[in-house]
Design a protein around this nucleic acid. Structure first.
Lengths: 111, 111
DNA sequence: CGGCATCCCCAACGATACTG
DNA sequence: CAGTATCGTTGGGGATGCCG
């Protein structure tokens, strides 16, 4: 339970699953779409999601190689929650940012 | 955005906000309710959530001291998503656990 | 193109002890 | 009761370089 929340709760998982919302994507596409993620973290997070059965990894044996990622049925059941979380974060980011600054101004750092 | 997702996506935040779903709770109550969290992590996570304006911290100057935590209006807007995530994790934990074991059995560890 | 391997660092976290 | 302080560990994650 904690493990599962730890995974799906990870910001990268949320963003990746959100990207695969309505279409399959290649590794490079995801890398470009998910701003700020390193190649390493993208690989690792995709592996976790694949391991948990939330997405499929399809290797096309061509040159150059091509790998497609797509949500599984299980992954799709997570979409609603994930999209909702993403939209919440997007909608309230300014409010939260303000709250943080106000809090920091009110609660001086202990020296 | 990443910061926000990192916070609300944290497993502890999800569980804490979920606990405050329909009532205010004391520190000790939360500590007992959120299995596996250390006192330190509970304190830190509550501080983060308070800083972001998702919950309020009310100190009652009594002996023994008493501190109540409650969701703010902003925190309440996060409830639906968080509850949905929690229920998803709970509902699919066995399926995911099976997927992990199957994956681990199929993909041998490199020695 | 889509990785994996390696090195390395630092923030996160647990455990424990102390306090208003 | 509800924290704070300190120490020690771990593992998350960036940077870089090589490979099928």
């Amino acid at each position: 339970m904690l493990q599962i929340l730890g995974l799906v709760g990870s910001k990268w998982s949320i963003l990746i699953v959100g990207q695969l919302r309505d279409r399959t994507m290649r590794f490079g596409e995801l890398h470009r779409a998910v701003k700020g993620i390193s190649q390493r973290m993208l690989t690792l997070t995709l592996r976790q999601l694949e391991r948990d059965g939330l997405l499929t990894r399809t290797v096309h044996p061509s040159v150059p190689p091509r790998v497609d990622y797509a949500l599984t049925a299980l992954g799709a059941t997570l979409l609603d929650s994930v999209v909702a979380l993403g939209e919440w974060a997007s909608a309230h980011r300014h409010e939260i940012s303000n709250n943080r600054h106000r809090y920091d101004a009110t609660h001086p750092t202990r020296t």
